[in-house]
Design a protein around this nucleic acid. Structure first.
Lengths: 334, 334
DNA sequence: CTGTTAGCGCTTTCAG
DNA sequence: CTGAAAGCGCTAACAG
């Protein structure tokens, strides 16, 4: 009951023209007699003809699809990025082909290979893969842009500008009268964690050069924030602001502070990083990432190079936006 | 500098065999002399040969990809579903091809057509498309499963079991000693909103047949919950439990109640629907949707039919899970 | 076990 | 303006 769907040949036969003419007519080439085109279009419609994208791709050596290799769609993070990519991809007339790559580098390579002939370019989100391991995995001749990779090597790359984010936070804190900031770091080895930690030191040097750079360990999780505060309190440290490496730790810090009887935004201000939904709800001052925009930019750059533009194969940063809420009240004015 | 990547023919030449043998060797067909296979594998490796998936698909009439047509990746909702699909899809050796369809039915149809020859099957998330409009849009001969569609028509479908969710909530409330429940409904016209409203009446009939069915209008947003409570308070209604059609409205209701001086979980219990992250944080009793599981099931069913199994082309429901937290304290025991 | 030969469905010279 | 024919890269009979 399901006679295979009509091919271009069926249409040609029905319209009594050659397949070449059908192709030309349907693709809007100008060298087609109006009447011929009309006949073809009519035949196509009555036969319910839909071009076979696969065949078209093979013949044109162009799939109009871009592949995305990512660790796991887990959490707000990746889905936001993918959302931005999906958007841009649709706007440019491309498709998105997803493939999640499990931590293992070998599987990652395989995931990429399996896309050859299916996509025109690749976007790789490989927090764990380094540039060289990537070069081996990347199919030769396939343009790629690396998102959130430690080192894009000779490829185009997209990253969050952690330094700018931390700098904005520290500047804001110092500007609101805070003097003794301490940073709750992300897990060592994590790209963003590492960058934010380093950036904190740099920001302190710039905005409060006379103050010491205090950093306590964390893990990006809520408990991490609580434990960090506990440690701080235990050693009786003096501090009036906490710059957590992400929102979850900031929340943990906030609750730990309050349950310990510390006047949370009053005596010690708290900032996060990411601007997760909960942050808005709890009034956490933080930094918004514009993940969707980053995804969109990745696609835009890739498509541009696919369509002939020369890409600088450089690392492009997307700047986070400071979002001031209630956990960092101003102290400079009475 | 980028000599086109090696084809099967290059490998054949290099290994001094026919392309057929290369194909057989590389695809693990048994009818190949071990030594030949070894030579082929070696040649493939030295040439850096990666099979061209597109060509393979065309020849085999099988893409091993499934297309997903969805409104927009916005919010926790869709990304969770897509995540589940991505998982299952990877496990089954398939790829996911995304394509977001803007509300317009014509564009939706186009999105689906554009996938012909690119995918073996389709998963359509079309809250707004009805079954008939879908039948016209669906490429003929392409198996599809509809997720969250009002009426799957003659297709396979997946949906959240709203009735089961509401029933569990009402049973729990009545079981904890509540008598006067009121439902804050979702926007009229929304599938889930409508179903939950109807289910509320049904659940009341079953668990508290002697009580009236009270329903106030809402819109799935936080303000909707606040306004609903305001209206309730204004008319001096007597109620000891609110069953909101989703978590956001439950939150709105909760805060409205509290700012109005009502003892929130004490005098009136509140429940939501969805189990968004915020719900856990605020201790909201609600119902968890298992969205990822739904996505995975959709893929599983589709792949099964693609691989020959007979699908019942029926609507399959995924049951939500009651999550009791602190907004519904027990009142039956002192 | 291996090679030859048709295609898969479409685009694209190259001649009319 | 139109048609015939040669592929795109790979698989799958069909003969050896």
């Amino acid at each position: 009951m399901k006679g295979r769907s009509a091919t271009i040949r069926d249409v040609a036969r029905h319209a009594a023209v050659s397949v070449a003419s059908v192709s030309r007519a349907l693709n809007g080439l100008n060298s087609v007699h109006p009447e011929t085109r009309a006949r073809v279009v009519a035949s196509a419609k009555t036969l319910g003809y839909v071009p076979h994208a696969g065949a078209r791709s093979l013949s044109m050596a162009r799939t109009h699809a871009i592949g995305v290799v990512l660790p796991d769609l887990h959490g707000e993070f990746f889905s936001e990025i993918v959302r931005g990519m999906d958007r841009e991809t649709g706007a440019r007339g491309y498709h998105l082909l997803l493939s999640n790559m499990h931590a293992d580098a070998e599987l990652a390579a395989q995931a990429m290979r399996s896309m050859r002939g299916r996509v025109d370019g690749l976007i790789v989100m490989a927090p764990q893969l380094d540039a060289t391991g990537l070069d081996e995995a990347l199919p030769p001749g396939v343009p790629a842009v690396l998102v959130n990779a430690r080192d894009p090597g000779g490829h185009a790359g997209m990253r969050i500008d952690n330094a700018a984010g931390i700098d904005a936070l520290v500047a804001h804190l110092v500007g609101s009268g805070r003097r003794d900031l301490v940073h709750i770091a992300g897990p060592a080895g994590n790209i963003d964690g590492d960058e934010r930690r380093a950036s904190f030191a740099a920001a302190m040097a710039r905005h409060a050069p006379d103050r010491p750079v205090r950093i306590v360990a964390g893990n990006f999780r809520e408990e991490g924030g609580q434990q960090a505060v506990a440690a701080l309190l235990r050693e009786d440290a003096a501090f009036d602001a906490i710059v957590a490496a992400n929102d979850m730790m900031a929340l943990g810090a906030l609750t730990a502070l309050r349950t310990a009887g510390v006047d949370a935004p009053g005596a010690v201000a708290v900032t996060g990083f990411d601007d997760i939904p909960l942050a808005r709800y709890l009034g956490l001052t933080t930094v918004r990432l514009h993940l969707a925009e980053m995804g969109a930019r990745a696609v835009a750059r890739l498509v541009d190079t696919l369509e002939g533009a020369e890409d600088a194969r450089t690392l492009e940063l997307v700047t986070p936006e400071l979002v001031v809420r209630t956990t960092t009240p101003d102290r400079t004015s009475p």
